[in-house]
């Protein structure tokens, strides 16, 4: 019989490997010139997709842990969230640096004219302080403010999904992803209630 801590260790290893694999693949494809004939779009789409998947997985940990009784899953939130932020940052770097060539005018025009760009930027700005305060030390220093601050992950996820919905020509997959997020949010409600009651 394996203990919960063994499960956690195994799951953590799986997450590190699973989350780094798409990055490795991106690097290999970039160096070998296998990024499609529209390489910048390919980089943008792939980093964005992985970021969104990891973010939704991160948000699934707590509800899934509660549902299954595998409470150790809660500990997976942080690495998944941080990996998501890594891909979000790459996504933004590709957009600003490669796609728009650091051209401030073109970028500000894009933010003003494309609402999906604005939503993506909002999502990044909401995630930034969460990544910056992900350490144990920061958690201790912030005390009960830490939890309140990290509640921002929900608006960040909503902004990320709006970003995805607004850039898609066909809404089906974004709507499925939004339904998943909604389900996760609904699952949080009873948990939140319990927590409030306990206080």
């Amino acid at each position: 019989m394996s203990s919960p801590s063994t499960h956690l260790r195994q799951a953590s290893v799986g997450i590190h490997l699973g989350a780094l694999f798409p990055l490795l693949l991106l690097l290999i494809d970039s160096l070998l010139g296998r990024l499609s004939v529209n390489p910048i779009q390919d980089l943008t789409l792939r980093t964005g997709q992985v970021a969104l998947i990891l973010l939704l997985l991160s948000l699934s940990c707590t509800p899934l842990g509660r549902l299954t009784g595998w409470t150790w899953m809660v500990a997976l939130r942080k690495p998944l969230g941080l990996y998501s932020f890594l891909y979000v940052s790459l996504h933004l770097l590709v957009f600003v640096g490669l796609d728009y060539g650091l051209d401030g005018l073109l970028i500000s025009q894009a933010i003003a004219e494309k609402r999906y760009v604005l939503a993506g930027l909002v999502s990044f700005l909401l995630l930034l302080p969460l990544a910056a305060t992900s350490t144990r030390a920061a958690q201790r220093r912030l005390g009960r403010w830490w939890r309140r601050l990290h509640w921002l992950v929900y608006p960040a996820a909503i902004a990320a999904l709006l970003h995805y919905l607004w850039l898609s020509k066909v809404a089906r997959v974004p709507i499925l992803a939004a339904a998943l997020l909604l389900a996760l949010l609904l699952l949080r409600i009873p948990l939140l209630r319990q927590r409030l009651r306990r206080r």
Partner: peptide, 25 residues
């Protein structure tokens, strides 16, 4: 063939990432 590929592979090597981006449209 592969013009763009070569360009992007170069641009991706970490040291040149930002240097390669200032290119005019």
């Amino acid at each position: 063939t592969r013009r763009g590929f070569l360009g992007i592979a170069g641009a991706l090597s970490a040291a040149t990432l930002l240097a390669a981006c200032g290119r005019r449209a």
